[in-house]
């Protein structure tokens, strides 16, 4: 019995021991969201690409989603081991900047974003439009009012616990302003359910629980390219689509400022940007020379990109959530 217990204890601490290996080469630690570092995400490719040039060890540490990432950083405070945080979006950067833990990124690059970018603290690496994704051949509403008037069912994410959910809230806020609560009330009977995160919502949609799900205009590209399935389409809304810009920033307390700066430069170079489209299923911040992968040309491209400044987003968030809650609780 005793030996069995020793084995189990050994197993438990094995992972710990593995981390105690020698640190002869400098280590750059990057906190990011989980899906970035999975085998299917961009993490492994980016790591290999950067380590070729940096004579360093790049370590990605996954912490939930974008929101969890920020909460984690605030929990750890200035003592954090992270040198860079990668994976916040513009709806979170105001809160992130407020911590005073970030320093300027120091990169000047020509970015291919639908909007102008002049933030010196956070540097974008990819972007996408929120959109409802439904099945091809089924009714596709042309805007929120159209959707509300139809009996099409949708599944959305909770704005309090998920970044797409918050994106939708700000989308309607940006498109309708004071009429936003009215839109939400009209949408209430279309909403099958509200999930905590993107994964659950998308799973429900794939299971046929709703006609459409809140996701990204790029989601159909995944099905098309990775699964050769062209049955999923994003709905083009004529009031415009809300933009999500994903960014990274350097922490002031980093012990590897040179490596961190090198990584930020690498992040907007082809070695990083070329893998984004088919690994993160978003638009790269700098379009590759060879253009976007085949299949991306089939995606809808909104005529109007909506985005609140991070300060406006932070200010709008609380009242918008209250209005949303009130509308959906009736």
């Amino acid at each position: 019995m005793k030996t069995h217990l020793t084995h189990v204890a050994g197993l438990l601490f094995a992972a710990t021991a593995a981390q105690a290996e020698s640190h002869a080469t400098p280590v750059l630690t990057i906190y990011t969201y989980d899906s970035f570092v999975t085998d299917w995400g961009p993490g492994p490719l980016v790591e290999a690409g950067f380590e070729e040039t940096c004579a360093c060890d790049l370590e990605f540490v996954g912490h939930g989603d974008g929101a969890a990432l920020l909460a984690r950083l605030m929990l750890e405070g200035p003592r954090t081991e992270a040198d860079i945080v990668l994976g916040l979006d513009t709806n979170l950067t105001a809160a992130a900047a407020e911590t005073g833990m970030f320093t300027s990124h120091g990169v000047t690059a020509a970015l291919d974003l639908p909007i102008a970018w002049d933030d010196q603290t956070f540097l974008p690496y990819d972007w996408g439009y929120f959109a409802f994704v439904g099945n091809a051949g089924e009714p596709a509403p042309a805007n929120f009012e159209d959707l509300a008037a139809s009996d099409v069912s949708i599944v959305i994410q909770d704005p309090r616990s998920s970044t797409p959910g918050l994106g939708l809230l700000l989308w309607i806020e940006a498109a309708y302003g004071e009429r936003a609560p009215e839109i939400w009330e009209a949408l209430a009977d279309n909403i099958v359910t509200v999930t905590p995160g993107w994964s659950e919502a998308y799973g429900l949609f794939l299971e046929g629980e709703a006609d459409a799900v809140l996701s990204y205009t790029t989601s159909p590209a995944y099905h098309l390219i990775a699964e050769e399935d062209d049955s999923k389409v994003a709905w083009a809304f004529d009031e415009g689509h809300y933009l999500q810009v994903e960014v990274a920033g350097i922490l002031e307390g980093t012990d590897q400022p040179d490596l961190a700066a090198a990584f930020m430069a690498f992040m907007v170079s082809p070695g990083f940007q070329d893998v984004i489209a088919t690994a993160n299923w978003m638009y790269p911040a700098v379009t590759p020379e060879a253009g976007l992968p085949g299949g991306f040309e089939t995606l809808i491209t909104p005529d109007l990109a909506l985005l609140m400044s991070s300060e406006d987003a932070a200010a709008a968030r609380g009242p918008a959530i209250d209005a949303w809650q009130a509308a959906l609780t009736q």
Binding site: D158, A188, I191, T193, V194, T195, E200, L328, T329
Partner: peptide, 8 residues
């Protein structure tokens, strides 16, 4: 949250 159908 998943089956509740909304913020209520």
């Amino acid at each position: 949250l998943t089956l509740g159908g909304g913020p209520k």
